[in-house]
């Protein structure tokens, strides 16, 4: 399900959505919905918040959200919230700030944010904040660019960025993710990888601090990971390409304003045109 979302969104960024058959795609997405209202990664699997968000994102992309029973899906999502404000990924109780993003974003798409306890969700995200301004997967967890993206975006949807985030401290930590290669890493003293071009960069954009990294150097790094024969993008130069890194590479280039690509929204990870059509609201900070 997530793979389909990455591929479909990548094609929209490239301005070639017609390369996928909409009717077939939507029918497959709907076939993955479970009686609980949640969506599974594929027909024979169990429902999970990760795939519920991916499914709703695909439906949003193709203007087909009216196919789902919003109240039913919202009840499934809100039912996964715990007393401390966190969200479990499914009934088995794994807790991760990624699921907070999936839940708040899904509810925003369904116009049912009021189904969850948003102030409690914000409190939980605050507990996951760290000494370096970043966020981890659970309280106590080390900062990681992927979790930084999900927490910043979730707080943006909740309208609580300014309450919880120290934008100068976090912006600085993200700027230090750019390595001499021009690419970004996800944690201090780790290797650069194209996927962080989306996770670290989108958070920086939401915080209004995109100018705190070197855009030409990052652009050159992402383009250097392109396979000029097969066309996809890999994690690092000369590695094998995949749809995951192709999407995140394109999304990063789009945020950097690369010519020929449709602009992407840093919070909702969908084309800006889709976000505008759906009138989705999110808080953004500016650099004073």
């Amino acid at each position: 399900m997530s793979g389909v979302y990455w591929g479909a969104t990548a094609l929209h960024i490239l301005g070639q959505p017609e390369r996928l058959d909409k009717a077939q795609l939507i029918a497959w997405v709907m076939s993955c919905q479970k009686p609980s209202g949640g969506f599974a990664g594929s027909e024979k699997h169990d429902a999970h918040l990760l795939y519920t968000l991916s499914a709703l994102q695909i439906l949003a992309l193709y203007d087909s959200l009216d196919l789902v029973d919003a109240s039913q899906v919202a009840a499934y999502v809100a039912g996964l919230q715990r007393g401390d404000g966190s969200f479990a990924g499914d009934e088995w109780g794994e807790i991760d700030t990624r699921f907070s993003y999936c839940a708040l974003y899904s509810l925003a798409l369904l116009r049912r944010l009021d189904a969850a306890n948003v102030p409690a969700a914000v409190d939980f995200l605050r507990q996951c904040r760290n000494f370096d301004g970043g966020f981890g997967a659970q309280p106590g967890g080390e900062s990681h660019a992927g979790q930084v993206f999900t927490c910043v975006a979730a707080l943006s949807i909740a309208g609580a960025l300014d309450e919880v985030v120290d934008a100068d401290l976090l912006g600085w930590w993200i700027s230090e993710r750019q390595t001499p290669s021009g690419g970004l890493n996800g944690r201090p003293e780790k290797l650069q990888d194209v996927c962080y071009s989306w996770w670290a960069l989108s958070a920086l954009s939401t915080l209004g601090r995109l100018a705190w990294i070197d855009a030409p150097a990052l652009t050159a790094f992402i383009l250097g990971c392109q396979d000029l024969e097969l066309g996809g993008i890999s994690d690092r130069p000369d590695d094998a390409v995949d749809v995951f890194h192709t999407f995140f590479g394109l999304a990063g280039l789009s945020l950097l304003g690369h010519p020929g690509l449709a602009p992407i929204d840093p919070v909702f990870a969908l084309p800006v045109t889709t976000v505008t059509r759906l009138n989705l609201a999110a808080q953004r900070l500016s650099c004073a």
Partner: peptide, 10 residues
Amino acid sequence: DPYRAGYYRH
């Protein structure tokens, strides 16, 4: 450290 010049200006 030119990659982070934007931060230093801030």
